[in-house]
Design a protein around this nucleic acid. Structure first.
Length: 459
RNA sequence: GCGGUCGUAGCUCAGUUGGUUAGAGCACUGGUUUGUGGUGCCGGGGGUCGUGGGUUCGAGCCCCAUCGUCCGCCCCA
């Protein structure tokens, strides 16, 4: 057998026991909140049909989809193809050798699910989904080829109550995870459309939003430079600049916007949506979240049509830890028109890093085995097995170290697994019927009866 | 797709203008009054120096290529 190097593909990760416990803590906390608001969990397959995914994420997105090679002799089919230096040769080849692909996000599979199961689901349909997705991207800091998305969406309801509730979900989940200072930024795509209309370049809305979205990162000068490069003129900047730099509280911003966008029908609609969302929100109690209307918030995705969200922690230097928005007609691509939806996503990997940096993982999430039984030989092992059984029947996490190892090795095992108690069984213990119980933190050791031990472990 | 960085033991890394047998810490393992860890002491195993060429009497070190890593840009979570 050849000696294969033990490595994993670029941009993928192993999760060890400690990390898994903490990841599950994050997922469980979020799941609980989703459930509280009526969202139900679904899962979709790792692979979708390639045609389900292609064309949904733009040309660049298509290239980042991991394709799965067909089984069998796919070369046979491909042989009919004339291989030339033509640049679209691989485009022609692809459908012949691949008809499946790994999911690229959870939103498109969800849209596919909704259309496919439309007769079974009740509208509005609220679902959440926590599964890995894959992108053939170049990995870098905080960016992987396999990562988890944690999404909740509702389709079939255009009520802005949904938007308000998503803000509550963010607040509750992140507060429950121990975050104390974070901002949920809100904007509306229709306001951005109104602004693009105002400068007479509605077709350039994508370039405009992509540029102003970078205000945090590259500053006003950088944004202006990029806008000029994309074909905006100085007179456009003169209109945009005061909007981008709009300050004050949410109400003041809305009032200013109201007069700026007075003549824009779509802009007014956007303002109305924000106001309605805020008025719903006024009925709920938020824990830690700050809500901020941020007109520079754009989010790259083109399918958003209404409210958009992004969550940032103010306690650590970290990009967004969540985002989402409303998209009209997500299912149109699958032949079901006019179904509106709104959804959010938690960036689990980034939340993990934040919690770790702020030391917010509770120590209780690490609780593993409570007691290890150490024995000196086979006779002691036989003597210990009924005890092991009794401990587990009493719902105490217990292990027995199989006989054959030295006491030092067994103690080391307990120590490294952070097992707080060790029961030692040797000849003396078998004769007296008392166990030697060692407290691993203090090092003290006492003789104790089996009943006493169980009582102590349950205390 | 573009730019930069780094590849030496399982891991983190030293390694002098190119010069004997390539080192350390951690990890693993054995011993240390044969019934006790975290925390003493002594020992041991483990490396085609990413790969392939080149220069040289001699290459971990210099040159070229290639693969991989990490970090930026574009884009994105």
């Amino acid at each position: 057998m050849a000696n294969v190097k033990a490595t994993i593909p670029k941009g993928t990760r192993d999760f060890g026991p400690t990390v898994m416990v903490r990841r599950n803590y994050i997922f469980d906390t979020i799941k609980k909140v989703f459930g509280k608001y009526g969202y139900q969990e679904i899962q979709t397959p790792t692979m979708e049909n390639l045609e389900t995914l292609t064309g949904k994420y733009g040309d660049e997105g298509d290239q980042l989809i991991f394709k799965v090679l067909n089984s069998g002799d796919y070369m046979l089919k491909a042989q009919g193809l004339k291989l030339s230096a033509e640049e679209n040769t691989s485009k022609k080849l692809l459908p012949l050798i691949s008809e499946k692909a790994l999911r690229y996000d959870l939103t498109v599979p969800f849209a596919r699910y909704v259309v496919m199961h439309q007769n079974e689901i009740t509208s509005p349909f609220k679902r959440f989904q926590i599964q890995p997705v894959w992108r053939a991207d170049r990995p870098q800091k905080g960016r992987y080829r396999e990562f988890y998305q944690c999404d909740a969406d509702v389709v079939g309801s255009d009520s802005l109550l949904n938007e308000a509730e998503f803000i509550c979900i963010y607040d509750e989940a992140l507060s429950n995870l121990g975050l104390k200072d974070f901002t949920i930024k809100v904007n509306n795509r229709k306001i951005l459309s109104g602004i693009a209309g105002l400068i007479g370049k509605p077709d350039k809305i994508v370039d405009m939003t992509v540029a102003i979205d970078k205000l945090d990162k590259i500053g006003l000068d950088g944004v202006e430079k990029e806008l000029l490069e994309k074909g905006f003129e100085n007179k456009d900047l003169a209109i945009l600049k005061p909007i981008i730099l709009l300050s004050g509280n949410n109400e003041e911003k809305l009032n200013s916007l109201n007069s700026i966008l007075e003549t824009s029908v779509i802009g007014q609609k956007g303002i109305e949506e924000i106001k309605k969302t805020f008025s719903y929100l006024a009925n709920f109690t938020l824990q830690k979240a700050k809500i901020e209307l941020d007109l520079t918030l754009a989010r790259g995705l083109n399918y958003y049509t209404g409210c958009i969200f992004e969550v940032k922690t103010n306690e650590a230097a970290m990009g967004s830890i969540g985002g989402g928005g409303r998209y009209d007609d997500l299912t149109g691509m699958f032949g079901k028109e006019g179904l509106t939806g709104v959804g959010i996503s938690f960036g689990a990997d980034r939340i993990y890093d934040v919690l770790e940096e702020l030391n917010l993982f509770p120590s209780t999430v690490m609780e593993g085995t409570k007691i290890l039984i150490c024995v000196f030989g086979e006779a002691e092992e036989n003597y210990a097995l009924p005890l092991l059984n009794r401990l587990r029947s009493a719902n105490i996490k217990a292990e027995l170290f199989p006989f054959g190892a030295k006491m030092k090795k067994q103690m080391q095992y307990a120590n490294e697994k952070d097992i707080p108690f060790v029961a030692v069984i040797g000849g003396d213990e078998m004769q007296s019927g008392l166990l030697s119980l060692k407290n691993m933190a203090s090092g003290e050791q006492v003789k104790i009866t089996v009943d006493g031990l169980i009582k102590k472990m349950l205390a």
